[in-house]
Structure formats: C-alpha cells, structure tokens
Write a protein that binds this DNA or RNA. Structure first.
Length: 513
RNA sequence: GCUCCGUUCGUAUAAUGGUUAGUACACUUGGCUUUCUACCGAGUAAUAAGGGUUCGAUUCCCUUACGGAGUACCA
C-alpha cells in the first residue's frame, strides 16, 4: 500500500467522546502501520451547532492519548487549510459544477415548507417521505419550475440550496473493508442537500471534496455514515474522481440497556465518556473525564483498541507501538461493542502497576497539592511503590493510602473488638518500648524484633499483628506492615501505637461493661 | 414505516463444515500471606429460534425474533 493518508474529521459541536477516540485511534494506527499520514480536519460547517472550545478540547484530547496528527489546523501541512470554515470559498464551485453537469439542481423550498410537507405526509400515513426523483416534481426547484421562474428565485437569492440529483434504479455497491460488499438501490436514496442556503456546504459535499483534495486514501469512520456512503460514491462518480476505500466502524453501546453510548451515560453508570471534564454551558451540566477519574491515557487507549478489534491472539496488553504493528482493518469486529467498566478498570490497574514510580509520583503531585499534603520526594516514591499494586484509579492512592499522611480519625473498631485482648496490653507496651530502642528502624529489623518477641512469648501472630496494623494504619487494608512502619518512621509509629492502644483499651472496657 | 448493518459464556472476543467451542474481565473457590492487593491454581457460564443444503452446520442459505444505524439546509 503506498501513500496511505487518513483523516479524523470531528465536528466541534462538543467534547470528543470515547467513540470518537476509538475512530481517531484506528485511523492513527492504520496510518502509522503503513507509514502513512494521519490528518486532523475540523468539520465546522454547521454554524448553529458550533461550540467554542470544542476544537481545543479535541486537540488536547488527541494529544493526551498520544494520537499526534501529521497535518492539522495547528501543525499545518501541504493540503490546508484544515478547517472547513476556512475552505468555504472552494465548495460552491464544485456544487455548481454538478449543476452544470446535470447532477444537481437548485431548490427553493424553505425549511418550514419542508417541515410541514414532512408532517403532512406523516399525518396521512406516509412515514419518512424523501425528497427524491418521485417527489421533487411537487416541490420548488429548478427541475420542477420553469427556467424563468428558477432564474427569478435564484437572483433573489433567498433560501437557495443545492441538491444532489439521483437517477432511480441503479445498484450502488460499497466495498467496505470491514463489512464486505453493501449494496443499495438508488431509488431508496434521498436527494440530499449538498449546499446550504447560508453559503456553507453540508457534510456530504465538503467531505468528499476535502477527502479528494487532501488525497485521502482510506476513510475509516463511524457506522452512522454507512447509509450516506452511496451518495458519496455517486458524487465521486459525478466528479470523475476515484473514491477512497471505506471502513465503517460499529458503534459503542451502553454498558447496560439499549442504544449507543451517550454523553449522559457516564454519570448514569459511573464512568467517564470524555477524556477530560467538560462543562456544558447550555445545560449547566458537568461531565467527568477519564483524566480526572484517574485513568492513564495508555490504559484507555489499550482498552478502547480492543473494543471492536483484536489481533487474533490471546494477548491483550499492548503499547501503542505494538498496536501499530498488529493493527489491521480486516480484524475489526462488525458487531457493536459494549463499554465494560470493569475491564477498563482492570486495564488501568495493570498500567499503574507497570508504570515507573517516578512517573506515577509526577502524576500524583498535583493531587497532593489539592489535598494539602506535603511530603518529600523520597517519601512519595516509597509510598507509590507500596501502594501501586492495590490501586485501580489514581485517586485510590489517597483513599486507600490516606494513613500514610495522617492517622485516620476513625479506627475500624470491629476488628479491635475482635482481636484486642486486654491481657496483651503489657506485651504491646513492651513491643513499643523495643521499637523505641531500635537503632535502625528498617522493615526487616522491625519484623525480626516483633516476630521474635511473639514467638518468645508464645503469643501467635493473629493476636498481635492485626492490632499493630490497626494501631498504626487505622484500617486492616494496606501494604506490608513492616514496610509501612519503616516509611512512617519510628516516632510516628510509636506515637500512633501508644494512642491507639489507649483507644483499644477503652473500647474493650466499654465492651466488657 | 422504509433502507442498511449486526447476533458465540454476564461483558469483550477466539476458532471451526466433524473440537472436551479457547482466552480475558467479572463472579465463586483454593494457594501464597499479618491484612488488603498483586500473583498462581480450580470452577460456573455461550454458538438467539425455526427451517433448509450436507454423511455431518455454531460455521453456508432462507425466515423469524431481537439489537443497532440512517431516514435534517446536523455532522
């Protein structure tokens, strides 16, 4: 395959969502696999739905995931501009070219007229009427009106759109790379507007003009475009251009229930749908992001890559480089994939465990600031090392490891009641005293000290160690007790144990009373 | 409604015209262990239904059911 050029072409109408991330990823992987070019093109032809900040959000998201584009509005390139609004001037002549060739025609119906036309039809039982070869005769357009009338309306210049003209009864076949041959009959197609009254092209025109001019070789996009692909193919034919190859990706489905994953499903099911937090100024809603939830971008990429694609073997942890090597369009799954929250968490955990302590520490630093926690670099690194394998999301470091920064107010009393024996108090006091006298407060030294005390006094681990853990951590969950103690430090451990023992004794006395 | 697409354990998926239908997550359970993890081992669990074609179908064909997408001067 030579000269692979693919594009990711989002519309800046809101934040990039997980389905878009997957589409971008597959485009990226395909381009890199074939030594091709990955292009970011912003499709901002709809002025009404344009959302300020959305483009920046999309760019930032792609960056976070490492999906760097070779050509884009920011990076530039030989095929620019890469924003359709900046290409506005060139689309009209293509629309007019189609009219000259007889492959398109002017329309003068207003949106309201079309609206009522559809509603009337529906009311009389005719659902889903189309503007096509059968109905265009009853509408206002350059095919139904006399040339003089058309001319007049055209000169007036109000509500003029251009529609694609489609001859009935032609078989149009898409050779889709993932779905195989998909055939449509042209009689079933509607004659879509390709040029709007506001002077902007619609997606259909802009898309094929740009794909052609940017020499896009492979179009990899969402399934929602499959049914308009015959229109696109027709336009390539009308212009005399060679169409690119097409691959249509199935959609990502809600974790439970029906339908495609929507932006509100995140809040509903407790997981993010967007890369970063997003505040919708129209509805005053806040949507949570993968980053803020504590996902690592490489984990999300790995997870998403396997949502509708697989390399054909049993492996599933892949770096971007490996994905590039392994990716192929023919291993894309046709069926829609459900977003599995549990699996995404598992991936994140795997990636956290595998990540270098220093890198994790860097990610945690802003979170330390937020929480007003002040520790040394050395302390942070050791903390990370002890906690990393029991963390799924980044913030879990602070929920699960809170006791590394201060003794919890609440101690798990149940365990104290169960395990603490008043008659062991002298032993605990003795052990604290031994700790106080230790020259080197290292985990191995503490371990030897405690364990030999236990065996010398024939106490049993079960009666002592849980209490020591509870007394220093306030919880039964946590890393190796002796390593935890070493990190906490001699004085801190002694202080915590001393005051905890008072609490335990009190609990026990209350229980006995 | 119409057009198009899809359907293998709960989920993501593998494989095959003849197999004990594999793997991972989740779940249950055993081991390791001072706890929680991680790790290692075991277990539960699937070819949507009905017709064909065939010696034989989960695999090919048809129908049905269910799910999805499109049906805008939105992308």
């Amino acid at each position: 395959m030579t000269n692979v050029r693919v594009r990711f072409a989002p519309s800046p109408t809101g934040p990039l969502h997980i389905g878009g991330v997957r589409t971008a990823l597959y485009n990226y992987l395909f381009a890199k696999k074939h030594g091709g070019t990955f292009i970011l093109r912003i499709e901002d032809t709809d002025q009404k739905r344009y959302v300020p900040g959305a483009e920046e959000y999309i760019v930032k998201s792609l960056e976070w995931f490492g999906l760097t584009s070779d050509e884009s509005p920011l990076a530039g390139g030989d095929y620019g501009p890469y924003r359709q609004s900046e290409r506005k001037s060139m689309y009209k002549k293509y629309a007019e070219e189609l009219i000259e060739k007889g492959f398109a025609y002017y329309c003068f119906d207003t949106s309201d007229e079309l609206d009522t036309w559809r509603k009337e039809n529906e009311a009389s039982g005719n659902q889903g009427v189309k503007y096509n070869y059968l109905t265009r005769g009853e509408m206002k357009n350059s095919l139904s009106l006399s040339p003089e009338e058309s001319r007049k309306l055209l000169d007036k210049g109000e509500n003029v759109t251009i529609r694609l003209k489609i001859e009935p009864n032609r078989s149009i076949t898409i050779n889709d790379e993932v779905r195989g041959d998909v055939t449509f009959n042209s009689s079933d197609l509607d004659e879509k507007v390709i040029f709007k009254a506001d002077g902007m092209p619609t997606y259909h025109l802009a898309n094929i003009v740009d794909d052609h001019k940017m020499e896009i070789s492979h179009v990899i996009r969402g399934e929602e475009w499959l049914s308009s692909t015959p229109h696109h193919l027709l336009m390539y034919e009308y212009f005399g251009w060679t169409p690119p190859s097409f691959s249509h990706l199935s959609l990502i489905i809600k974790p439970v229930g029906k339908g495609k994953l929507g932006k509100r499903d995140g809040a509903k099911f407790g997981f993010p749908v967007f890369p970063f937090d997003w505040f919708d100024t129209k509805t005053n809603e806040t949507f949570i992001g993968f980053q803020e939830t504590g996902y690592l971008p490489e984990a999300v990429i790995n997870f998403v890559s396997l949502l509708g694609w697989n390399p054909g073997n049993d492996e599933e942890i892949f770096t971007m480089e490996e994905l590039i090597k392994l990716f192929s369009l023919d291993r894309i799954v046709k069926a829609g994939a459900r977003f599995d929250v549990d699996k995404s968490k598992w991936f994140n955990q795997q990636y956290i465990i595998a990540k270098a302590n220093t890198e994790l520490a860097d990610l945690l630093k802003p979170m330390l600031v937020e929480r007003n926690i002040d520790v040394t670099e050395d302390y942070l690194l050791k903390f990370v090392d002890l906690m990393k394998e029991r963390v799924e999301m980044l913030p879990d470091f602070f929920t699960g490891g809170a006791f590394f920064f201060s003794m919890p107010e609440e101690i798990e009393e149940k365990m104290a009641r169960k395990k603490y024996k008043l008659e062991n108090r002298p032993h605990f006091d003795a052990m604290i005293e031994m700790m106080r006298n230790m020259q080197q407060f290292t985990s191995s030294a503490i371990e030897t000290t405690i364990k030999s005390y236990i065996s010398e006094n024939e106490l049993g681990f079960g009666a002592i160690l849980p209490i020591l853990r509870l007394g220093t951590c306030g919880t039964m969950k946590g890393p190796d007790l002796f390593e935890t103690m070493e990190l906490l430090g001699q004085q801190e451990v002694i202080d915590r144990l001393s005051s905890s023992l008072e609490v335990f004794t009190e609990i026990k006395n209350r229980q006995n009373a």
